[in-house]
Design a protein around this nucleic acid. Structure first.
Lengths: 139, 139
DNA sequence: CCGGATCCAACCCGATACTG
DNA sequence: CAGTATCGGGTTGGATCCGG
């Protein structure tokens, strides 16, 4: 499979972190904004769930254990606003609304999965480090 | 350069999202925890800055505009605990402490950069979508 | 069925002051 | 220099009730 690109890959592609991270905090602030969005409690779960195909509001709610109406609605609205998710309301009664990943959303899914894969691959390393750290620090 | 892997790549590699995202929220909760950590305000900046090489505490503080002592210390402690960052204290006076990315930390940097690259590549798409969405919604 | 509106608790984070 | 301790505002997010 295609390997997760290395930092060198990104530098080679002309995307690097400037000395002080002003570009991160600057033109970014935008990038930071995106990372924030991805990092918040539910976005990843919603995107991940929609990665399997379109879902209705209620389906999402029960596919994502623990999410509240408020947060689901809010997250979906944000994602829709950013063009990552497409909302389709069918003029029926009772109402039916489906959410699906846009092309943009699917491309983000890739990067998110890259992160998830990293976490998955290294979960034992992290757990081990935490254990040793905690033992060293609480003894 | 190596392209960002697609969702299909990950599925092919045997890493997929289970139907309901229980593995995300379950064995994960762990993955969620990692994503949370990455998503918080300063982690990305710290890792990005350390990606250029080891730095001292004070150097980090002024390389990352706006970070407070508290947050720098906290972020570094978390990263150290997870084994992403290595702390080296030199028994001198005045004290000198250096922080550096571990191998694990560098591998995470890759994924984080993947996300940053995504944000960078698609910033115009997102801005456009936001504009149209806001116009449609506030008019 | 889909979501908006409100209230309220919990936590996050910045500012400040202080220590080894 | 490299942190720790404490306080207080601001935001997040869950619960609940209500509307279309």
């Amino acid at each position: 499979m295609a390997p997760v690109p290395t930092a060198a890959d990104f530098r080679a592609a002309g995307l690097r972190l400037p000395g002080p991270c002003e570009e991160w905090a600057d033109d970014a602030g935008f990038i930071r904004g995106v990372v924030d969005r991805v990092g918040d409690k539910w976005t990843v779960l919603v995107i991940g769930t929609l990665g399997d195909g379109p879902r209705r509001y209620t389906d999402l709610q029960q596919a994502i254990p623990g999410i509240s109406q408020r947060m689901l609605t809010l997250t979906l609205k944000h994602l829709t606003r950013d063009g990552l998710v497409e909302r389709t309301a069918y003029p029926e009664v009772p109402p039916r609304v489906e959410y699906a990943l846009t092309g943009l959303g699917q491309s983000l899914l890739s990067s998110v999965l890259a992160l998830a894969r990293w976490a998955y691959d290294h979960r034992d390393d992290i757990r081990t480090h935490r254990a040793t750290f905690d033992r060293t620090n609480t003894a």
